[in-house]
C-alpha cells in the first residue's frame, strides 16, 4: 500500500488544513496519513478526523521518523497527527544558528 514519495512532493491532509512537503524519503512505498486519513496531492474537501489522531502540526517544523530515514517540512499547520505506516512522526529538533544575513 501507499506510494513512493519523491523529495519535493507536496501532500495535503484530507481532514484538516495541514500541508507537508517531503524533504527526503526512502525509495519504498509509504502510507502517509493525517488525522487517520491518507494524505492527498490535490487539496480538496475535508472529511472526518479520527479524534485519537488530532495532535496537530506546526508550520515550519520538520517531522521525521524514528530512524530519520525520512523528513517532511510542515508548510501549513493543521489539527491532525501525521503518521507514516501507522507510526506518528516527531518534530526534529534543529540547532538554532545565529543569524548571518
Amino acid at each position: 500500500m501507499g506510494d513512493i514519495i519523491k523529495a519535493g512532493t507536496k501532500l495535503s491532509s484530507a481532514v484538516c488544513q495541514t500541508q507537508i512537503m517531503a524533504l527526503r524519503a526512502p525509495i519504498e512505498r509509504l502510507e502517509i496519513t493525517c488525522g487517520g486519513a491518507p494524505m492527498v496531492t490535490e487539496d480538496g474537501e475535508k472529511g472526518e478526523m479520527d479524534s485519537d489522531l488530532a495532535g496537530g502540526t506546526l508550520v515550519g517544523k520538520r517531522y521525521v521518523d524514528e530512524r530519520e530515514a525520512m523528513e517532511f517540512l510542515c508548510t501549513r499547520a493543521g489539527e491532525g497527527t501525521v503518521q507514516v505506516n501507522g507510526v506518528s512522526l516527531d518534530i526534529k529538533q534543529a540547532k538554532q544558528l545565529p543569524s548571518s544575513d
Binding site: L23, V59, G60, K61, R62, L73, Q96, L97, S99, S100
Partner: peptide, 9 residues
C-alpha cells in the same frame, strides 16, 4: 534556508 534558518523564529 532550511539548513540555517528556523521558520518564524
Amino acid at each position: 534556508i532550511l539548513g540555517s534558518v528556523e521558520f518564524m523564529s
